[in-house]
Design a protein around this nucleic acid. Structure first.
Length: 874
RNA sequence: GGGCGGUUAGCUCAGUUGGAAGAGCGUUCGGUUUACACCCGAAAGGUCACAAGUUCGAGCCUUGUACCGCCCACCA
C-alpha cells in the first residue's frame, strides 16, 4: 500500500506504469484450459498503416469496458488483438515513399517491393499497438495476430481452394470497377458515390439510309460514345417504334448502330433514346447481355483511350471528352448542353473517379453463403445491438452480388492459381511445379492478390489457428461479441458471418454491437487553433486517458452519433480530479487500524444513518450499472456511477461522515473501495492507482471481483429519513441564500411536524442538519407558532422556519411562499382531476392509483402548511 | 426511387414492459465551511418539431406532415 498521495491529480503520472504491470502479471491472458465460462471478443484489426483516431478510441473503450467487467466477474475473457495488412492503403503509403525517392514499385520489382513493405511494417507497424496499450486496452498480446501471418495466410489459401473446388470462386470477364490511379479492380463496396454537378450532353445520331432523319441521345460521358454498339429505346415508345429495324450512325466514327428495344429505358428522361456502351457502363453491359451486343473497350487501365478509339487513341479520358465535344460541336452533332447533377463513383482509397471496365477477374458467388447468413440473424443466432441494424444487414444480404476479389496489387495474399500454356488453371493448397494435365513446367502464378477483406472475413477463426483443430478454437469459438461501426457492416460483419458459418461451422459471434460515429470535433471550431484535437493521443495527453474513456463511454449510446467537445472532456476530467480528491480526503485520516472491509463483515444495525444511507444508495447504483452494462448501455452505466459518486458519495456522504469519522471509517473505506471497482472498467488507471493505496484484498483491481447486488443493503426507511433530512438542509440553505445570511453565521431553526416518528428521528439526527445547514439550534415542534421575523419553507409535509429577527423582507417572503403555493395548487388540481376520473381509477393499476392518492395527500399537507405560513406573515 | 435514423433546456445529448420531464456544459446569485475553485451552496430555464389517432393516461405506440442527416439503387 502506497501511502503518499500528491496534492494534484496528474493523469500522465498515474497512467504511466500500470499497463506494464498488468501485462507482465499476465492478467489479460486467456486460458484455453480454464473451466470458467468464456467471454471472447476479437478486435477489429486496425490497418498497420494507421494511427488511432477518435473512432477507434470509442470502439476500443466500448470493448475494454465490457471485457474488463467480464474479467472481474470471473469470466475467462479473451480480447484478441491484431492488425490488418490493408492491401491498397499500405501499398499506397510505401509507394508514396518510393516516389519521393524518384522510384516506382516497378523499378524495384515485386519481390524487392514486398520486402520494402515488410520493412516498413516492422518499423511503423507497432505504432498502433503501442497506442492501444496507451489507452489501456486489456488485450491478450500473447495472441496478437497479423493478417499476413503464416498461419492466417494458410487459412486464406484453404478457403480459396475450397470455394474454388465448390465452384463458388470463379474467374471471368465482367464489367468491374477500376481505379485508374491505383490501377486495380475494386469491389462494389469500395466505390463511393458522390453527387456531382455535371453536364448532360445531347448528341444527334443520324439514321442510316436517311438524309435528314436523326435521333438525339443524352449522355454525361460523351467520350464513351467511341464504344457505342447500339441505340436503345423503350419498346412501347411510340415516337420510335418505326425505327425498330433500322440503324443509327455513330457520329465522328461512322459505325452503324442497331436500334434495340429495352424496358430499362426511361421514356421520360431526355429524349427517351439511349446510347449503349456495354464495355463502360453497368446498365449498358446488362443490355448488351440481353441483346447480344458487341463490347468495345475504348478506355484502358490508365484511363486512356484505346486504339479502338481511333483518332482519339492515347488521350486521357477527360482530355478525350473535351476533344470529342469540340469535334461534335464543330460538325453540328452537339445540339444542347444542360447542367445535370449525377452520382459519380470514386475510389474509396484515393478518390479518383472510378472507371467501369471490362476485365478478367476472380469472383466469389456469395449468394449461397448469404442464405445461411441471413438465416442466422433471422433465427436470432446473432443479435444486433441496437436491433434495427439487422435491417441494414438484411437489405444488403438480400440483394448481394458477386464479389470481385482480385486486386492488381503486390501487397497481400497472392491468388493461389497457376496458369499453364495448355489452358489449364491450377488452384491448389501447395505450390504446383508442373501442370497436372500436360506436364508442362511452364506454369506461372496469377499476379494478383486478394481483396484485403477476403482475409479479414476469416479473422474470428483464422486468428485461433483454423484450419487446424486448436484448443483456442474449442475454447473460444464462436466469440461472444463483435464491436464495430456501421460503416463496415457490409465489408466485414456480413462477410464474417458468411465465412464463419461456412468454414468454422458456427456463427463467428453471438452479438454485434454497432457504435455510433464520433462527429468531427472541428464542427465546434475547437481544434483548429490547437491543431490536432482530433488525435486521441493528444487528447489523452491533455485530459488523461481515463477522462477521455469516461467521456466516450458516457456519450456513446449504442448506434448513436455524438459530438465530442472540449466542454465534455473538461467535465469528465473534473470527475477524475474529484475522485482523486476524495481519495486524498480519505487517506488524510489514515489509521493504523485501517483494513479491507468485506460486505459480509458489515453489521448494519450498528451503523449511523449516513452509513446505512450510503450503503443503500450504493447498492442501487451498482445495480443500475450492472443492469445497464448487461445491455451494453455504457452511457447509462457511466451516468449512474457518476451521479452516485459525485452527488451522493461526495456531496452528501463525505460531508455527513465528518461528524463521526472514526465510527464511519470502515464503511467509508468499504464504499470507496467498491466504487473504485465499479468504476474500474471505465477508468482503469486512476482506479488501480487509488485502489492500491487504500485497504484492499488482492494484487490488482483488474482481477478484483466486480460489485454485485446486495439486496439486504437496501433500506427504504433509511433512504426516506435521510431524504427528509437532506430536503430540510436544502430548504434552510435556500432560505439562507434568499435572505442573504452570511456563510459563517449559524441560524436558529424550528421544524414543525405532528408525526411523532419524524419528530424523534429529527431529534436523533439533528447533528447532520446543524452541521450541513449551519444551524445553531434546532427546535422540533408540533405546529409552528409563527413570528413575523421568520423565513419559511416546506419540506414534504414538514414545515420549517428560520427565526431571524430583523433580516426578513416580508413582501419578498410572501411572494416566495405565494409562488410555492401556486405550484402546489397546480399539482393538486391535476391530481384531483386524475383521481376523480372514474376510468382512471377503474383501469389503471392499483399501485399507480395508490401512488397518486399518496401524492395528493402530500401536496394537500403542503398546501395547508404553506397557507399557515402565509397567514403568519401578516 | 427505396431504406434507416434524428427533431426534448441557450449548447451537446440521455430518457424500454406508456404511469410525477433528466444530465453535462453554459447562465444568474452567493461562497477562502479543516478533499477538491477542475471546487462548494442556491436558483432560473422545456407546448418533448407539427397534426390527427389509440389509451384512464403518450416524449415513448399508430398514421400523416415538415425540416435535417446517413445508407443503398443501372434515369443515361
Amino acid at each position: 500500500m502506497k501511502t503518499d498521495i500528491s496534492k494534484i491529480y496528474n493523469s500522465s503520472e498515474v497512467e504511466s506504469g500500470w499497463y506494464d504491470f498488468w501485462e507482465t502479471q499476465g492478467y489479460f491472458r486467456a486460458d484455453a484450459d480454464s473451466t470458467d465460462p468464456p467471454f471472447v471478443i476479437v478486435m477489429p484489426p486496425p490497418n498497420v498503416t494507421g494511427s488511432l483516431h477518435m473512432g477507434h478510441m470509442l470502439n476500443h473503450t466500448v470493448h475494454d469496458v465490457i471485457i474488463r467487467r467480464k474479467r472481474m466477474q470471473g469470466f475467462n475473457t479473451l480480447w484478441l488483438p491484431g492488425t490488418d495488412h490493408a492491401g491498397i492503403a499500405t501499398q499506397n503509403v510505401v509507394e508514396r515513399q518510393l516516389r519521393q525517392e524518384g522510384l516506382t514499385r516497378h523499378d524495384l520489382g515485386r519481390e524487392k517491393f514486398i520486402e520494402r513493405v515488410w520493412e516498413w511494417k516492422r518499423e511503423y507497424g507497432d505504432l498502433i499497438t503501442q497506442q492501444i496499450r496507451r489507452i489501456g486496452d486489456s488485450c491478450d498480446w500473447s495472441r496478437q495476430r497479423f493478417t499476413l501471418d503464416e498461419s492466417l495466410s494458410g487459412a486464406v489459401r484453404e478457403v480459396f481452394v475450397r470455394l474454388f473446388e465448390e465452384r463458388l470462386i470463379y474467374r471471368g470477364e465482367r464489367l468491374i470497377n477500376w481505379c485508374p490511379r491505383c490501377r486495380t479492380a475494386l469491389s462494389d463496396l469500395e466505390v463511393e458515390y458522390e453527387s456531382l454537378e455535371g453536364k448532360l450532353y445531347h448528341i444527334r445520331y443520324s439514321i442510316a439510309g436517311s438524309a435528314d432523319e436523326f435521333v438525339e441521345v443524352a449522355t454525361t460521358r460523351p467520350e464513351t460514345m467511341l464504344g457505342d454498339t447500339a441505340i436503345a429505346v423503350h419498346p412501347e415508345d411510340e415516337r420510335y417504334v418505326h425505327l425498330k429495324d433500322s440503324s443509327g450512325v455513330l457520329p465522328l466514327v461512322g459505325r452503324k448502330l442497331p436500334f434495340i428495344q429495352d424496358r430499362v429505358v426511361d421514356r421520360e428522361f431526355g429524349t427517351g433514346v439511349v446510347k449503349v456502351t456495354p464495355a463502360h457502363d453497368p446498365a449498358d453491359f446488362d443490355m448488351g447481355e440481353r441483346h447480344g451486343l458487341k463490347r468495345i473497350g475504348v478506355i484502358d487501365e490508365d484511363g486512356r483511350i484505346t486504339p479502338e478509339g481511333g483518332a482519339y487513341s492515347g488521350l486521357d479520358r477527360f482530355e478525350a471528352r473535351k476533344q470529342i465535344l469540340s469535334d461534335l460541336e464543330a460538325q453540328g452533332f452537339l445540339t444542347r448542353v444542360e447542367a445535370h447533377v449525377h452520382n459519380v463513383g470514386h475510389c474509396s482509397r484515393c478518390r479518383a473517379i472510378v472507371e467501369p471496365l471490362l476485365s478478367t477477374q476472380w469472383f466469389v458467388d456469395v449468394k449461397p453463403l448469404a442464405k445461411e447468413a441471413i438465416r442466422a440473424v433471422e433465427d436470432g443466432d446473432i443479435r444486433f445491438v441496437p436491433a434495427n441494424w439487422a435491417k441494414t444487414y438484411f437489405e444488403w444480404m438480400y440483394n448481394i452480388r458477386d464479389w470481385c476479389i482480385s486486386r492488381q496489387l503486390w501487397w497481400g495474399h497472392r491468388i493461389p492459381a497457376w496458369y499453364c500454356p495448355c489452358g489449364e488453371i491450377i488452384v491448389s493448397r501447395s505450390d504446383p511445379t508442373v501442370c497436372p494435365k500436360c506436364g508442362s513446367e511452364e506454369i506461372t502464378q496469377d499476379e494478383d492478390v486478394l481483396d484485403t477483406w477476403f482475409s479479414s472475413q476469416l479473422w474470428p477463426f483464422s486468428t485461433m489457428g483454423w484450419p487446424g483443430e486448436t484448443d483456442d478454437l474449442t475454447a473460444f469459438y464462436p466469440t461472444s461479441l463483435l464491436v464495430t461501426g456501421f460503416d463496415i457492416i457490409f465489408f466485414w460483419v456480413a462477410r464474417m458471418i458468411m465465412a464463419g458459418l461456412k468454414f468454422a461451422g458456427d456463427v463467428p459471434f453471438k452479438e454485434v454491437y454497432i457504435t455510433g460515429l464520433v462527429r468531427d470535433i472541428e464542427r465546434k471550431k475547437l481544434s483548429k487553433s490547437k491543431g490536432n484535437a482530433g488525435d486521441p493521443m493528444l487528447v489523452c495527453d491533455e485530459y488523461g486517458t481515463d477522462a477521455v474513456r469516461f467521456t466516450l463511454a458516457r456519450l456513446g449510446a449504442p448506434g448513436a452519433d455524438f459530438v465530442l467537445s472540449e466542454d465534455q472532456l473538461d467535465g469528465y476530467r473534473a470527475f477524475a480530479t474529484k475522485i482523486w480528491n476524495a481519495a486524498r480526503f480519505i487517506l488524510r485520516s489514515e489509521a493504523e487500524s485501517d483494513r479491507p472491509v468485506t460486505e459480509d463483515e458489515i453489521q448494519l444495525d450498528d451503523l449511523s444513518l449516513a452509513d446505512r444511507w450510503i450503503l443503500s444508495r450504493q447498492t442501487r447504483a451498482v445495480d443500475d450499472v450492472n443492469r445497464a452494462l448487461d445491455r451494453y448501455f455504457l452511457h447509462e452505466g457511466a451516468h449512474s456511477i457518476y451521479q452516485f459518486f459525485w452527488h451522493e458519495f461526495c456531496d452528501w456522504y463525505l460531508e455527513m461522515v465528518k461528524l463521526h469519522p472514526e465510527q464511519s471509517r470502515p464503511v467509508l473505506l468499504h464504499v470507496f473501495e467498491k466504487t473504485l471497482r465499479t468504476l474500474h472498467p471505465f477508468m482503469p488507471f486512476i482506479t488501480e492507482e487509488l485502489w492500491q493505496r487504500i485497504p484492499h484484498n488482492g494484487a490488482s483491481i483488474v482481477i478484483a471481483p466486480y460489485p454485485k447486488l446486495r439486496a439486504d443493503f437496501v433500506d427504504e426507511a433509511v433512504e426516506r429519513d435521510a431524504g427528509l433530512i437532506q430536503e430540510i438542509i436544502v430548504k434552510v440553505r435556500n432560505i439562507r441564500a434568499e435572505v442573504n445570511v452570511e456563510a459563517k453565521q449559524f441560524v436558529p431553526l424550528r421544524v414543525g411536524t405532528e408525526d411523532p416518528g419524524i419528530q424523534a428521528m429529527l431529534m436523533r439526527q439533528e447533528a447532520y442538519i446543524k452541521r450541513l445547514a449551519r444551524v445553531e439550534s434546532l427546535e422540533v415542534v408540533g405546529k409552528l407558532t409563527g413570528e413575523r421575523a421568520a423565513a419559511q419553507a416546506v419540506a414534504g409535509d414538514v414545515a420549517l422556519e428560520v427565526p431571524l429577527a430583523g433580516v426578513i423582507d416580508l413582501e419578498a417572503e410572501q411572494a416566495r411562499l405565494g409562488r410555492e403555493m401556486e405550484k402546489v395548487r397546480r399539482e393538486i388540481s391535476a391530481l384531483e382531476g386524475k383521481l376523480s376520473n372514474k376510468k382512471f381509477v377503474e383501469r389503471a393499476p392499483r399501485e399507480v392509483v395508490e401512488e397518486n392518492h399518496q401524492r395528493l395527500a402530500d401536496y394537500q399537507g403542503k398546501a395547508v402548511r404553506l397557507a399557515e405560513g402565509i397567514a403568519r406573515l401578516r
